[in-house]
């Protein structure tokens, strides 16, 4: 059982719907998106053909700050960052290079970064945002929905914002007034767009 609060696949063809429910579950697990989706409703109409996915994301963790990546220690005109979580090292280095210039950023070993002549106190440095996970999440989510949808649905419209997302795909032109259908699918989950 997936740890999603609401997860339904609506389809006139019962067998097809059940099989797509399995496909969606496997794809979301593979892409590690189960932990971020709270509700998901998929509607497939093979006669049009049309694929609609609407959903709500869980509260996402805020931006990763320098304090989350390592310890900051300021002494005698230089600041030393001891890396604790290497995962975000690359974006941290990019951030520091962009902000202070490469000549002021040294990395004597894999887990140490030293900043020279930087006009910033340790407290402010610790609060600098390194990455925002929600940006990557949006791309991952849309990619996962593209994998779930039946192949050949090349015409797509999508939206993500305020913890809600929708995705519509078809092999034909999508009609302009698709929004009522999307609102209806949100209503089925007990949500409003």
């Amino acid at each position: 059982m997936l740890p999603i609060e609401y997860f339904e696949v609506e389809c006139e063809e019962a067998t097809g719907g059940e099989l797509y429910q399995k496909i969606a579950g496997v794809v979301l697990l593979d892409h590690d998106l189960i932990r971020v989706i709270a509700k998901l409703h998929i509607f497939i109409d093979p006669t049009v053909p049309l694929f609609v996915a609407v959903g709500i994301t869980k509260r996402l963790p805020g931006p990763v700050q320098v304090r989350d990546v390592g310890d900051v220690n300021a002494q005698e005109g230089r600041i030393t960052i001891s890396i604790a979580h290497e995962t975000h090292l690359a974006p941290l280095l990019t951030l520091l290079w962009d902000k202070f210039g490469k000549e002021r950023v040294d990395q004597p070993d894999r887990f140490t970064i030293i900043l020279h002549g930087v006009d910033l106190d340790a407290g402010s440095l610790m609060e600098l945002p390194v990455i925002d996970p929600s940006e990557a999440l949006y791309k991952d989510l849309i990619y996962a929905l593209q994998v779930i949808q039946p192949e050949g649905f090349k015409v797509r419209r999508q939206f993500y914002g305020d913890g809600k997302f929708w995705f519509v795909a078809s092999e034909n032109t999508i009609c302009e007034d698709i929004m009522p259908l999307i609102r209806e699918k949100f209503a089925r989950m007990g949500e409003t767009l």
């Binding site: 097809g16 099989l19 797509y20 497939i44 093979p46 192949e151």
Partner: peptide
Amino acid sequence: EHDLAIYLFGNFAHC
């Protein structure tokens, strides 16, 4: 050119 072809379709009878 083969002896037999296995067609692997999707999940919808309509399609």
